[in-house]
Amino acid sequence: MSDAAETVLVSTAALTQRFGSTVALDALDIQMRPGVTGLVGANGAGKTTLLNALLGLRPPTSGSATVLGLDPRSQGAALRAKVGFAPERDVLPDEMRAVDFVRHLAQVRGLPRSEARTRASDSLWLVGLGEERTRTLGTMSTGQRQRVKLAQAVASDPEMVLLDEPTSGLDPTQRTEMLTLIGEISNEHSVSVVLSSHLLEEVERVCDHIVALDAGRLVADGPIAELVGDGEGITLELVDIVEPAGTVDAVESALRGTGIEVERTGTTLRLGGAGRDELSDRARDAVADAGARIRRLEARQRTLADLFEMDSFEASDS
C-alpha cells in the first residue's frame, strides 16, 4: 500500500452528536484517506452534522475527531485555514461579482490580497468560469453558482475540501461535469475531497472511498473497489418488437425451462444460477429461437445500490 493510502486525513473515535433526544451521529469510528471520499446517506442521515463536526463548528457531545492532524475543537481556526468548504445552501450574494466573491473568501482564509486576487481568477478558470468571472452572481445559472462555490473552496489552496451536496439542483449533464471537475481537482491538484451526497450513483462514479451513514450510524466505510465489484449473472435487455409478437415472454419461458434463475423487469431479464459463459450461451440460443432482438447483454456488476439494498439502506432521496 502506498504512503498516500496509509495517510489518514480524518479520523473519528466514538464521535457522537446529540440534539436533545435525537442522535445525529452515533459513536462514529471513521477514517478518511487522500483522494475523493464519498460521504453518502439519505437526507437526515447526519452528513452535514458530520461535516460541521469535522470543521469544528459544533463541539461533539462525546468522542473525538482529528482532521489533518488537528483537533477541530481546540485548533479549529488553524484547521479551517487548511480546509475549503462549500455548503449545500445557496450562499452567494447576488450583487457581487464572481471574482470578487472568490477573492474575498480567499482573503478571509488567510491569503494576502494580491495572491487572493490572482488565485480567485485562476480558480474560476479551473472550474470553467474564466470567461464569466466578472459577472455578478445573481445573473448566473444554478450550475454556474455551484461552480463558484467550488472555486471559493479551492481558491486558498486547501489541503482538503468538504463539499456538501455539490450537485444539488443540477441537471444530469451539469452533474456529470461537476463530478468530472471534482475528480480533476483531486487527481491533478492533489486536493483531497470529501463529497457529501445522497446519490449512490454519483459517489460511485467519482469516489475512491466511501463513508455511508444511516440515521447517524456508520453503515459502510472503506475503498469502493472493495465494497463493489463483479457480481453474479448477466443482464439481458431485449427490444420490444411487434412482429413476431411475444418474443420477450418466449425468451423468458425458454430460459426458465432450462433451470436458469430469471428476474424480469419489463423487457430486461436478470439471469443467474449458472456461470456467465453458460448464461450467455443459453440467452443467445433462446433469443435466436424466439426471433427476438437484443438491446443489451452485459455481465452484472455489484453496485453500491446493491450493497445497501442488502443492508436495508435507504439510499433514495427521501
Partner: peptide, 18 residues
C-alpha cells in the same frame, strides 16, 4: 493557472481585516 500556494497566510487577523 491553478497551482499550489506555499506563501504566507495571515490567519485570524487577516480574516478580520478582510
Amino acid at each position: 493557472r491553478y497551482r499550489s500556494y506555499s506563501g504566507a497566510r495571515h490567519g485570524l487577523a487577516g480574516a478580520m481585516r478582510a
